[in-house]
Amino acid sequence: MDPFVVLVLCLSCLLLLSIWRQSSGRGKLPPGPTPLPVIGNILQIDIKDVSKSLTNLSKIYGPVFTLYFGLERMVVLHGYEVVKEALIDLGEEFSGRGHFPLAERANRGFGIVFSNGKRWKEIRRFSLMTLRNFGMGKRSIEDRVQEEARCLVEELRKTKASPCDPTFILGCAPCNVICSIIFQKRFDYKDQQFLNLMEKLNENIRIVSTPWIQICNNFPTIIDYFPGTHNKLLKNLAFMESDILEKVKEHQESMDINNPRDFIDCFLIKMEKEKQNQQSEFTIENLVITAADLLGAGTETTSTTLRYALLLLLKHPEVTAKVQEEIERVIGRNRSPCMQDRGHMPYTDAVVHEVQRYIDLIPTSLPHAVTCDVKFRNYLIPKGTTILTSLTSVLHDNKEFPNPEMFDPRHFLDEGGNFKKSNYFMPFSAGKRICVGEGLARMELFLFLTFILQNFNLKSLIDPKDLDTTPVVNGFASVPPFYQLCFIPV
């Protein structure tokens, strides 16, 4: 058959498939802009700032609406009420993970971030239990974070109060905490193996944040037939998995079943207990991918939040002064901060919360999916439909947070200066898919920041009023603009 005829037939089939998918069930789905064949609503979305586009569309179609990214149908949730109703009140029905062709290629359905069903539930339950087990290797997770915080302070001392970009050092600290939990080992910041790991993690975040990856996920045929950065992403992930597998083999040879040292040991012990169960989800494949998931999810998000926190503290020296006064009063100079201190430091706690609220790190979270046909607000959402959640619409709700575009710790303080919780605080998402490392991340943010401010004054290279804190939105995360500062020993 003539190649031209084959091409026309293929394009015609794709067009018909697109029209059929977009028209099927439209009477039951939430409203939304009319999609174009094949490309859907992509032309109506700013790929570099999806969150802003969703906010604009919500003003037209309401808090629940339908979009098509290519052939992929998505239902968008915008605003606290619908997000709570879906992710919390109907948590089980909305607990699936959205379709990610690239991740599915890399992870093969294993791990904790992109798995679904029984596998996801069992691996998540085990990971939560293990991360909360403060007795691994007779050292609590808090001990590990405190140790890394001391190392971080010593690295900052080496800058000798000269101007520096904190990106690298602030990236090393949370990565080392995860390494300590998974591998029972922290690395020197100049260790070549550690630097290679950091390089792969950072490069992957840069790649994932590009519009090209959005295109690959919406048109998965590209993955096999086109060159691009997605190939580098898959190569980096394969490198990390190979490295983790080597460490798993080392653990198998040296493990003491009665004295687990780290996450890998705990997983291997669980595998041993379930070795007679042919349906067990505790396999080497799941261990390797879960460890890679924890490394990827637990490094860049925390380091970016820390980097943004220091920029905001530079911009608002009056806030920094209040935090340091609270540190001096509650902790002093002669001991290290600990998590028990947080309950006695409402202002510092409010500042950490406000940093996370203000920066809105992951504006749309990772997409969910419905696990069955769901009736939601008089609409029928078919099983498997991807759910896109606007966390921006919750964290920047102007009824809950007056002047949401302003950095103001009073958003989390009552009139008496006591810490005030808010149900709208969802930087880790909400419901059954809430970030498994939430507790660890909150511990790291509090301890790293208090250790830094206990030991250093922060000095800006320019007038604080002239510092730009506008986030650089890159399609996946909101990151701070480049800046330098000086760490002046107190």
Rank of each mutant, 00 (worst) to 15 (best):
K48S: 11
E354A: 02
G91I: 00
F263W: 09
P227N: 07
P337Q: 01
E85C: 06
F482S: 14
H344Q: 13
F114A: 12
M136K: 15
R105Q: 07
K432D: 14
R186P: 04
S162L: 13
F183W: 06
V8L: 15
P337Y: 01
D408Y: 05
F263P: 01
H99W: 11
G62N: 01
K420E: 05
F419R: 05
V248L: 06
T364I: 15
A350Y: 02
P30S: 01
D89P: 04
I178K: 06
S254R: 07
L233F: 15
S254L: 07
E325I: 10
I434K: 08
P471A: 13
L7Q: 04
E203H: 05
L29H: 07
K383C: 06
K235W: 08
T389S: 07
S254F: 08
L287H: 00
T469G: 10
D468L: 10
R119G: 09
I331H: 01
S365M: 04
V6L: 14
I387F: 03
S390H: 15
G431D: 02
L306M: 10
P63K: 06
D49L: 03
I362W: 11
P409D: 00
L11C: 14
R108Y: 05
T159P: 03
C151W: 12
L131Q: 03
L237S: 09
L314F: 05
L395V: 03
N378D: 15
V352K: 01
E246P: 06
F69S: 08
A430D: 07
L201E: 03
R119W: 06
V113K: 12
L445G: 04
Y80T: 04
E203N: 07
L152N: 00
E92P: 09
K158R: 13
K432C: 10
Q454L: 00
L233S: 05
E325Q: 15
G439H: 15
K247M: 09
L90C: 14
L311K: 04
G70R: 00
I169A: 09
C175M: 08
E250N: 13
K28I: 15
R442E: 15
G417M: 11
D293W: 04
F126T: 01
T159V: 08
I39T: 04
F487S: 04
L156K: 01
Y347F: 05
L15H: 06
Q484A: 08
L388S: 01
P471V: 08
E415N: 12
I257S: 14
I42G: 07
F482T: 15
L388E: 00
I331C: 13
S23L: 10
V82Q: 05
L54C: 08
V113G: 07
V370T: 13
Y379L: 05
L201M: 12
A350R: 01
S280K: 08
A106R: 08
F487R: 01
G40A: 01
D89Y: 10
I181C: 14
I223K: 06
R307P: 00
S18K: 15
V288L: 08
P481Y: 06
R333M: 11
I434Q: 13
F267H: 02
S460V: 07
V323Q: 01
L306F: 07
L195G: 12
P227A: 08
F239H: 13
L195S: 13
L201A: 08
F428H: 05
P174I: 08
P427F: 01
N418P: 03
V208M: 14
Y424S: 02
K190T: 13
Q276V: 13
P363F: 02
F4G: 10
P227S: 10
K273T: 13
V83R: 02
R329Y: 10
L314T: 11
G79L: 00
S390K: 02
L485D: 01
N258R: 12
V6E: 00
D293Y: 04
D262S: 09
K399C: 12
T450Q: 03
F126S: 00
A149M: 08
P3T: 13
K249D: 05
D293K: 02
L234M: 12
K421D: 14
P220T: 09
L268V: 05
L447V: 10
D256R: 06
E325Y: 11
N41Q: 00
V113R: 11
D46R: 07
V319S: 06
L71A: 14
P260V: 07
H316F: 10
K275M: 09
R139A: 11
E415A: 13
I42K: 05
F65H: 04
I141Q: 07
I42Q: 07
T210R: 13
M136D: 13
G384K: 06
W20G: 08
F451G: 15
R108K: 15
E400M: 07
F187Y: 13
V370K: 00
T210L: 09
I222G: 05
K138I: 09
V374R: 02
H99C: 12
K249R: 10
V351C: 09
G109T: 09
F226Q: 04
I284A: 08
Q356P: 01
R357V: 00
F187L: 07
F65M: 11
R144N: 11
G62S: 01
K375T: 11
L485T: 10
D466G: 12
S280L: 05
S51I: 03
L43P: 09
I387L: 03
E285G: 09
A161R: 10
L71M: 14
E444M: 03
G98F: 08
K421H: 15
G96K: 06
D224L: 05
R150N: 09
R157M: 12
S23C: 10
Y61E: 01
P101T: 09
V319M: 08
A86Q: 02
L295P: 02
E154S: 12
L467E: 05
G137N: 09
P489T: 04
E272S: 08
D349Q: 13
A291H: 01
S336H: 12
P367A: 06
I207G: 05
C164Q: 11
S393G: 04
L294C: 05
T469N: 15
D349S: 10
F419T: 05
S23A: 14
L413G: 00
H99T: 13
K84V: 09
A86F: 07
N378P: 02
P101L: 02
I207H: 07
T283F: 06
H251L: 01
S365R: 03
A309G: 12
D373N: 09
K185R: 12
E122Y: 06
L237E: 05
E72P: 00
D49N: 09
F65L: 05
C266N: 11
D191H: 06
L7V: 10
N418M: 12
Y68S: 12
R377I: 04
I462N: 15
A86G: 08
S422C: 05
Q184V: 07
A149Y: 04
M255G: 05
G417Q: 09
V153Q: 03
P480V: 13
T34S: 11
L391C: 03
A369S: 12
L201H: 08
F219E: 04
I112L: 14
C10M: 15
V248P: 01
F4E: 04
M443V: 09
R139S: 13
Y189M: 06
G27P: 12
E405P: 03
Q324W: 04
G25R: 13
W120P: 02
D463T: 09
P166Y: 01
T371C: 09
D466I: 10
V374Y: 02
T320R: 07
L197R: 05
L295S: 02
W20E: 01
G439W: 08
H353S: 08
V355C: 12
N176F: 01
D2W: 15
E122Q: 12
R333C: 10
I434P: 03
T385A: 04
R124G: 01
E85I: 04
I362V: 10
M240A: 06
T392K: 08
Y189P: 08
P101R: 15
L447M: 13
P3H: 06
K232V: 13
T167M: 10
P409A: 06
H230D: 03
D414G: 08
A103M: 14
E154T: 10
D165Y: 02
P317H: 07
F94D: 02
L54Q: 01
E253R: 13
S12G: 12
A321I: 15
N202D: 08
F94R: 01
F419I: 09
I269Y: 07
F239R: 15
S162Q: 14
M339S: 15
F168W: 13
